[in-house]
Structure formats: C-alpha cells, structure tokens
C-alpha cells in the first residue's frame, strides 16, 4: 500500500504544484477584478457602473465551466488565443472576482455612515476617504468571506483539467487510466485538496487575527 502511494505521489505532486500556481495567479486576478468592479459599481460614472454590473451578473449568473470553455473555445474566433494556463487564470479569476466584488461592496456598505461624514467634514475627497478611511476598516470584515472564496477558487481549479491543463485533477484522471489504482488515487487527491483548503483557512485566520489586533484597540471609535 505504501509503495503504491509512493509510486503515485511524484506525479500527483507535480499536479499539485500546477494547482497551487493556478490558485495564486487567479487569486491576484480575482482581487484586482473585484476591487475595480466594486468601486466602479458604487462610485463610477454611469457607463462604468453598468459595465461593472454586467460583469458581476454575467460571471455570477453563468457556470464557471461554461466561462472556462467560452474563453478556451470561443475567444480564438475573435482572434484572441490564450495559453490554456492563461485561460484558466483569467476564467477562474474573473469568476471569483465577480463574487468578490459583492463581498467588497457589502463590507464597504457595512462601515458606519458617520465615518463618511467625519471625512467630509474634514474635507477629504471621495477617493481619499475610500482609500484611507473606509477600505482599511472594511478590510477586516472582508477577510473571512474572501477565505471562503479562495477555497472555492482552489476547488474551481479542478475544472481546468477539462481544458487539458495538467493540474491535480488532470493527473488524477491520467493516473487512473494508466494504473487503475482508482481508490488510492482519488483518496490521495481528496486529501491533498483538503490539506490545501486547510492551509488557506489557517493563513486567512492568521491574517484576520493580525489585522484585527491592530484594529481591535480602536473597535469602539
């Protein structure tokens, strides 16, 4: 049993590396897209606001897999051909970003109106207020839901196996066909995903504690 697992492990770890890379890159895309979309939807001029709403609704309203296939199969007809890795990063990043935009919007809205008023009374501009006063406070409230989104993102990376990208899920199917050690392979893969999820949870908790400690002193302000 152990020998079997050791045999499978190198290939699976190679897939794991790809899964981690995808998750990290897509997370960067997701955060960026979410921030831009949330701020545009809330404070942008009208056309930009509509664009942000359309982005959020389309990417939340359709399947991640459909988005992935669309970017992979249809985009080339528009003259845009991306590497499978780039397609994976963009599709997953934009998908999670649409949910993230609503998370950011919600946490901005949860900040007491008095903070905006105090900033206005001090003559701070809207973007200054957002950047210096509101977002730093909203940041703490955002961390737990973003932790969940990153886990959704990690789970979502399994989809890229369907556009022939060699991630953990892909390696699992490949090994399954070659070795037929079905039980060992899929159990191992589930455990690896579980460990990655737990890692995300631990990292986000640590971040939350760190940030909250800085802010806790000022909680009742």
């Amino acid at each position: 049993m152990f020998a079997e697992i050791l045999e499978l492990l190198p290939e699976l770890l190679r897939g794991t590396l790809m899964t981690v890379e995808l998750t990290l890159c897509a997370a960067v895309v997701a955060i960026t897209a979410a921030l831009i979309a949330a701020v545009s939807k809330m404070y942008g001029p009208r056309p930009l606001r509509w664009l942000a709403i359309a982005y959020i609704e389309v990417f939340r309203g359709t399947s991640a897999l459909v988005q992935l296939f669309w970017l992979f199969f249809v985009l080339p007809y528009f003259g845009v051909t991306l590497e499978p890795f780039a397609v994976g990063v963009v599709a997953l990043g934009l998908n999670i970003g649409a949910y993230g935009a609503e998370v950011i919007r919600g946490s901005i809205l949860s900040i007491d109106k008095g903070q905006w008023e105090a900033a206005t009374a001090l003559n701070l501009g809207r973007m200054q207020t957002l950047r210096r006063i509101i977002l730093p406070q909203a940041f703490v409230a955002m961390i737990p839901p973003w932790g969940n989104l990153f886990i959704e993102l990690l789970k979502g990376t399994a989809l890229v196996s369907m556009i022939t990208l060699g991630d953990l899920a892909f390696k699992a199917q490949q090994l399954n066909q070659n070795t037929l050690r079905t039980l060992q392979i899929f159990s191992l893969v589930l455990i690896i995903y579980l460990c990655l999820s737990l890692l995300i949870t631990v990292l986000m908790r640590t971040l939350e504690h760190r940030v909250a400690r800085g802010l806790l002193r000022g909680r009742a302000g």
Binding site: I151, L154, K155, G156, T157, A158, L159, S161, A169, A172, Q173, N176, T182, L183, F186, S187, V189, L190, Y193, L194, S197, L198
Partner: peptide, 21 residues
C-alpha cells in the same frame, strides 16, 4: 468540512470510478 473543502469534480469521479470497487 471535508466535503466542503474538496472539489465537486473529484467527488463526482470518486463516486463514479471508486464506488464500483
């Protein structure tokens, strides 16, 4: 927690490929 932390796709494979064993 376990099911929530792992991809649905792998769970589908697990039920489809592993259960026959």
């Amino acid at each position: 927690e376990f099911i929530r932390s792992t991809p649905l796709l792998i769970q589908i494979f697990f039920l489809y490929y592993v259960m026959p064993e």
